[in-house]
Design a binder for these strands. Structure first.
Lengths: 165, 165
DNA sequence: TAGAGTTAGTTCAAGCAACAACTATTGCGC
DNA sequence: GCGCAATAGTTGTTGCTTGAACTAACTCTA
């Protein structure tokens, strides 16, 4: 590139090219597995997973958008499609009629139960099987640090209850 | 989720939810900066960067697709758009008339020189500024390990010359 | 209790990506 | 040499994401 100035160091560059490649390849790999085995996008799966952990299996659109790191328009379309398939329901909130509560249906819950194991296997295969326990902790630390820059307000982090995937 | 079986450990789950969030947010953040400041997608930028490091600033389509982790149809469209803007040129390879050689033009090189510093700043801001040198090495190691699972043949790794971003 | 401003969500147009089908060129076997 | 398979790219269709309006509902203030 021959541009002077504050360039990346060799160590940073090595980390960067690999991170970029992971960013490009991992989402596609996860999408392929879920789409093939469950007919779901990885993002769809995340929506269902968040709902399945929420109290009453219900969340408000804005809250759900925050947890899934999505914009509201994007979530709106995804939720519409999932509702058409009967996996979730939409109810206007009685208290605030601007708001919409999204609820996981029984069919949606069964879908999760059926598709989760295969997805977990894929996550293990692509990510955790080849990492040492120390590396898992390092990854959590590093990704958490990045998140504080990417989402400084921290709005977009779920309660971190149990069992997300 | 209440599904028995080989679930993720708490440590793995902590790493996973953070990694997922980074996967969702970082590409968008990089895209926004480049689109706003340079009128380029992050993928566009990667294409130009790869070309700027190649000998003669020229690469074959298939080779370039490998380096940028893209499918050939996707690259074909991107290259067409970049060529329309005068940033690259396409030449049928004299030796093998099936093949297309893509070359960075002088305008394309100037575009890189103009937009690289701002992009590097963004990369620093989102990723490296808040990581220790040890974490940078750990990240390189971890991402490299994942890549071996995601791209076992290793086809998709560039020569790792100097100055990629 | 109006009116201004804010919040929640949907919809619309434009652009990009994935997958499949297609063309053109090359190389190999007989 | 002739024909078949493999290689290198392109094109076209469909679906999804994004960003910008737009509607509806709520709140705060005068």
């Amino acid at each position: 590139m021959s541009v002077e100035g504050n360039w990346l160091s060799p160590a940073e560059r090595a980390a960067w090219v690999r991170l970029i490649a992971v960013l490009e390849l991992l989402p596609g790999a996860l999408d392929s597995q879920l789409r093939r085995d469950a007919g779901l996008t990885h993002f769809d799966y995340g929506v269902l997973a968040m709902l399945s952990e929420a109290p009453e299996r219900t969340l408000r659109m804005t809250e759900l958008a925050g947890y899934t790191n999505a914009t509201l328009p994007r979530l709106s379309n995804v939720v519409k499609r999932l509702a058409d398939r009967g996996l979730i329901e939409r109810h206007t909130c009685p208290g605030d009629r601007r708001a919409t509560n999204v609820r996981l249906t029984e069919a949606g819950h069964e879908k999760m139960v059926a598709s989760a194991p295969g997805h977990v296997d894929a996550v293990r295969e692509y990510v955790f099987d080849s990492l040492s326990p120390e590396q898992v902790d390092q990854l959590a630390e590093i990704a958490g640090t990045m998140l504080e820059r990417l989402d400084p307000t921290g709005v977009k982090r779920p309660p971190l209850d149990p069992g997300s995937v």
